[in-house]
């Protein structure tokens, strides 16, 4: 059991959770993820680390309520059954900042994808990089942690589908305008957004890193549920990733694979809602 200090909504469908997990955060580097289980009989769900406080041993996560297990997680109080991490490889720039010194960086985030971008931007900014953020969502209400990201990035540009905040349109519209200002792009968000960003940056030959969040069970290289096609080869997002060269990812297969348990997930959500009396 791990002590939970906070588990609160921060938007219509997103939550912030703070967990005491010193061994998880002690060696964590931005880009890595954890797997959490609300209760002993819960599903294992992978979440990329949002923030951490190494001195206090505090791990911070942001999650979107999308199915039975994340709905169950909103009910967690005081204690959570399991948190394992850090898992996966760190972001390559955060791991070896020296190699990338002087590069101009842009982080392109979609929806809850801003959560894993935040610690990277903060980490790299502290190490002298110039970092901008382009952040998109369907509408203003779905834009998260604006204060935090504005504090750490040089510039933050917003885009909303309905124009309720920032540019009306997609993150790719904003990115294309400024694309020559950057040497490296990191895109984290829904598969379709990462696919569109990668297609755009490929045209301009801009190095692009994406963080994949496919289905996962153990998260340690054991089950292969998270396998993704990278340059025609099968790779495991949990141990080979989660970050890959965006120009080498077969997003079409990745998007289709997300539907593997669609029917089962729908049923589980209904069952969970019933169990929780919602």
């Amino acid at each position: 059991m791990y002590k939970v200090l906070k588990n609160v909504p921060i938007s219509e469908n997103s939550y912030l959770m703070e967990v005491v997990a010193p061994l998880v955060v002690n060696k964590a580097i931005p880009g890595q993820f954890v797997i959490v289980m609300s209760k002993e009989d819960s599903e294992r769900i992978p979440l990329t680390i949002y923030d951490y406080d190494k001195e206090k041993g505090l791990l911070k996560l942001i999650y979107q309520v999308i199915g039975a297990s994340t709905l169950e997680m909103t009910k967690v109080k005081d204690e959570i059954f399991s948190v394992v991490g850090p898992l996966g490889r760190p972001n390559e720039m955060c791991k070896d900042p020296e190699i990338f010194k002087g590069k101009r960086l842009v982080y392109v985030a979609g929806g809850v994808g801003i959560a894993p971008c935040y610690p990277q931007v903060k980490y790299l900014k502290e190490r002298g990089f110039q970092v901008d953020i382009i952040y998109g969502a369907r509408n203003e209400g779905l834009l998260l942690i604006r204060d935090q990201i504005e504090k750490v990035a040089d510039h933050v540009y917003y885009a909303t589908d309905d124009g309720s905040y920032g540019t009306k349109g997609f993150v790719t519209n904003v990115l294309e305008e400024k694309i020559n200002d950057y040497d490296i792009c990191v895109a984290i968000g829904p598969f379709i957004m990462m696919k569109n960003v990668a297609e755009l940056t490929k045209k301009y030959n801009l190095k692009t890193i994406v963080s994949l969040n496919p289905l996962m069970v153990d998260g340690t290289g054991m089950c292969g549920a998270c396998r993704c096609e990278i340059e025609g080869k099968s790779k495991f997002a949990c141990v080979d990733g989660p970050e890959f060269d965006g120009h080498k990812v077969n997003f079409d297969v990745a998007i289709k694979r997300m539907n593997t348990y669609r029917e089962e997930e729908k049923k589980k959500l209904e069952e969970m809602k019933k169990a929780l009396g919602e």
């Binding site: 069970v217 089950c223 549920a225 396998r227 096609e229 099968s234 539907n259």
Partner: peptide
């Protein structure tokens, strides 16, 4: 092999 419906025995057994 990356199709939906192809699993490793480990995945089936772990689940």
């Amino acid at each position: 092999e990356d199709a939906n419906g192809v699993f490793s025995a480990n995945e089936i057994l772990t689940r």
